[in-house]
Nucleic acid binder design. Sequence first.
DNA 1: CTGAAAGCGCTTACAG
DNA 2: CTGAAAGCGCTTACAG
Lengths: 328, 328
Amino acid sequence: MADVTIDDVAKAAGVHRATVSRALSRPEAVKTQTRELILRVAEELGYTMSPLAQALRSKASIFIPLVVPDLVNPFYAELATSMTQAAGDRGYQLVLCITNRDSERAAAYLAAMQSLYAPFAIVAPSSRVDMNTLRQFGFGDRAVVIDRVDEQSTAPSVTVDNRRGIELAFDHLRSLGHRRIGYVSGISGIYTARERIDAYSELAGAESIVLDSGADGDAGRRAAARLLALTDRPTAIIAGNDMTAFGVISTLAAEGLRVPEDVSVVGCDGLVLGARYSPALTTVRQPIADMGNIAIDLAEKKAMDGTVDHVLLTPELLVRASTAEAPA
Amino acid sequence: MADVTIDDVAKAAGVHRATVSRALSRPEAVKTQTRELILRVAEELGYTMSPLAQALRSKASIFIPLVVPDLVNPFYAELATSMTQAAGDRGYQLVLCITNRDSERAAAYLAAMQSLYAPFAIVAPSSRVDMNTLRQFGFGDRAVVIDRVDEQSTAPSVTVDNRRGIELAFDHLRSLGHRRIGYVSGISGIYTARERIDAYSELAGAESIVLDSGADGDAGRRAAARLLALTDRPTAIIAGNDMTAFGVISTLAAEGLRVPEDVSVVGCDGLVLGARYSPALTTVRQPIADMGNIAIDLAEKKAMDGTVDHVLLTPELLVRASTAEAPA
DNA sequence: CTGAAAGCGCTTACAG
DNA sequence: CTGAAAGCGCTTACAG
């Protein structure tokens, strides 16, 4: 089963190697009878094509890079899982490229993927990969982007309606009687982070309380500390992502404030993990599971006819246990 | 910069293609002067070898599969991160194979990696990949295993001293005055789970209280519910892994029990995330970051001289905020 | 130490 | 519809 090549199949089926190749990759180009014979023989011999040889010869492979900044933020882990599944289902092999926010590492990955003849690349938010880098390695017009990368949008993208997400969180808190609602950014894609904080500012208007707008992993802790220091404390906090919400709650609790009794907290992401947090996190769910398939659709469409689509997904509020009525 | 091949370099340097190949892969086989010329020319032309062509010809590639059950458990995400780093540093390209505990999917991955001439495979615990499957795809004697897979141990392995880990947790709780200490298993590799629960049983002796021994994601919730139902409740719980500890705490809190005031909880893993939990999780840290390099070392050593080593790493107690003195 | 040749496992115009 | 040939970008015995 190990070393059966296309020639073995050809010989066993009594046809030429080229015919086997066609039967497998362009079935309509071969007479039905011949094809069926070949397929059967291949099956019997346990033949599978060498993706290596295939890629080398045709200058196109099934490898598709997913560029993510890290895997420690479960958002990317969930994204990677969804993408892997979607890619696998459609005959691709996802290769995870973890940049650690290091642009040299990202470049190395892109170079490697280029030499593997990857048909396109998928770039996750916050990966610190700009269009210039993509262009440099030949992915300029074969990349799809999650979160927006530039205004001109030469690359297809799949994004979540951040405005709507923040609105869902805000309305939820208002309906629970909260009037002083703080905000903390934390790590997300640059555009995502901006859209969210802008949406918040607009909704809160003059009552905006941006507790922290940093983009590092410590934003949650700082925001909680900041809240503690205020005289007229917010009774609720919206966090730009779930990990930051965890940081907020953890720090608040360590300082003796209870969530949700004293302060309500809403996250953004909808991580599976949030359901196991203490308290279970109320959050705005991003449809991560859909992103994989959509991203690949977009890439294939672009390759077919050049269409550059921008898909906007709708988020959804997940009410769990970290929000409650505003204290009297 | 895109399409420069070995022949371009050869021509520009005035040597034969074979010499370029040698200069790059076996430098000592080429005269210093020639080699330096070639290296310079290659550099100027921005030449990088095609890993595809290289692999096809030499039947050996730089792709190395890391087989993990999922990525949603941050333990695997952290492991994957560490492995990716280690692999990259040593000239390999890690390919993440997420099996979703589906053995067919695992087989498909292994088949793909075999046809990519992967030099060896790394198998994470709980991946539901046994030695037979590995053998079937030619990885029988080129796999390294994290967590133990079989008693005969034909594959090198890197494992953590589970016994010692549980002991650390147990002693910590005892020193805080806890006398009734419960245990919950949860998801881990089969051997890991068994070793841990055995260690617990031995330490606790007649006072063992196994709250739940299931291996699914709901073990934590069930264990907490079980604790609540007991008349003579344990004052502390050791969880077989961090995710399970999260589940325990979350459920306990939802039912009005405070951690650590009412119940202390210790996890096992040392996830980065635990520091952000509420309360921050006391846990037994597994040296995940070391595992990547060690696993690759073991694989290379085995390939060199057939040595089958079993490395046992020492865990470490991380005292954070989820444990406190036993209530009076 | 270097070159010439064969070949890894495929695909794809080109004939027929 | 099928076969024969050339070639993708490399490596590696084999000569010299």
